[in-house]
Structures are given as C-alpha cells and as structure tokens.
Amino acid sequence: MNGILKDFLKNRQFVFFTVLIILIVMTTVLAPVIVPYDPYEAVLKDARLAPGPDHLFGTDKLGRDLFSRVIYGARVSLPATLSLVGLVFFVGVLLGIISGFYGGMVDAVIMRLADMMVSFPGMVLAMAVAGIMGASIRNAVIAISLVTWPKYARMARSIVLKVKNEDYMAAARIVGGRDLHIMIKYLFPIVAPTLVITAATDIGGMMLELAGLSYLGFGAVSPMAEWGLMLSEGRPYMSACPWMMIYPGLAIFIVVVIFNFWGDALRDVLDPRQQ
C-alpha cells in the first residue's frame, strides 16, 4: 500500500493537478466567503458593466456580479459532474458485473439494451430525455447517465469474462461463496481499477456535456449560476459585452483542463503499461 502512495507522490504531474483540484474544491466550498457580491442579487442600475475594479469580470444583463456568479458556478458544475460520474460508474459496474457473472438471458438482455443505447449518437438521446423530462440539472445528469452507462458496463463485463473461469473463482464458489459475496468480494476489486481510471479521465468530458445541455436549455434553469447557462444568457449581448461569454467559458475550460490532466496523470500512475 505504501508503495502505491509513493508512486502517486513521485508523479509530479499528478501531485500538481491534485493540488489544483483541491484548490477548486476549496473555492467551491468557500464560495460564500470568497465572493464579493451576492451572485443572485440583481442590481439593475449596474447592468452590463464592463470588468473593472468594482466588478472583476463585469456584470450581466441584470447587474449581477459575474465574478461571483462564475465562482458560484463551480457549486453547480462540480457536484453535478461528480454525481454523474458516480452514477454512471455505479450503474455501469453493477450491470456489467451482473451481466458477465450470470451470462445467459440476463447477459443478453443487458447487453442488447447497451447495444441499443450506443446505436445512435448519445447527445441526441440525452437531449431528448432531458428535454422531455423537463429542464433541470438533475434530469440532465440522468439523461447523460442513460447514454453513458453502456461504455462502463461493457468494460466491466469483458473484465469479468476474462477472470470468471480462473481457478480462484471456482475455488471461491466451491467454498460456498454466495453470488453477491463473490461479486462484491472478488469481482469488484478486479474490475474497479480499470473503471476508476476510465471514470477519472471522463470527468472533464462529462462536465462539458452537462454544460452543453445547460447551454441548450435542457439543464440548469435561470436564474441558476451555471456556466453553460450563463454563456447562453450572455450570447445576445456578446457583441457589446463579450465578458459575459468569455469568463464563464474560461471557467469551464480551466476546470476541465485540470481534470483532464489529472485523469491522465492518474492513469500513468495506476497503469504504467499504457505509456
């Protein structure tokens, strides 16, 4: 165990980006203390102010302080993205292990369902689901999970199939391990590393998809301080007030870059063969 920790600390890229992620998380948690203004308080006389000493990033059409809103945006995006990744991981791993372990009918049903989900562009289905269920962050998370779980389930299943017939699996069964016990105690630890790496490298991409749905109006709803939604609200004013679209976009970009680099470094540490 100590060895793994050392590997983590030895990888400078990983340490660096972990520190940055801790900073982002701290900003998210401490947002109420950091922000100079209430991100939801409209001050109409201050509408559309350019960035300046009073308003670092300027203000939006309702005179809300953009800097405060951008900081608050992390409080929406981060939990939403992490719960999305968590949900996809959980559902994917669960169905994948069940599918691989039991085989037969169960496997056929789950995998045909997965095939169906990936037989057309995911974003379209996500849009349709989110749109029909009604715009909200929660529905956007559900919609994207719905189209992403097959990837995880297929990976988990293929790993399970590889080890299923190994001797120690037979041994576990002979000593009377119940199915659930075998799946949790033996299969999950084997499946987990690969899927954790995948999940870590997917965080950035999922954040982008969530922001995309919000931009289209299928995610966050006004007046929520969400980056994608802020961009779409700033769109009509962008010629005169470009800051309304520059800063929220920059926020997404920076956070996603950090998570992508972090995921990449994590993969290097956990799976050096990939290099």
Binding site: L208, G212, G228, L231, M245, G249, I252, V256
Partner: peptide
C-alpha cells in the same frame, strides 16, 4: 483543444 467547450469555441 479537447478541454474547450464547443459552444464556447463557437462563440469565440
């Protein structure tokens, strides 16, 4: 490049 939201790239 892969970390930039495409709607932001479009707007820029």
């Amino acid at each position: 490049g892969v970390s930039m939201p495409n709607f932001w790239v479009g707007l820029l």
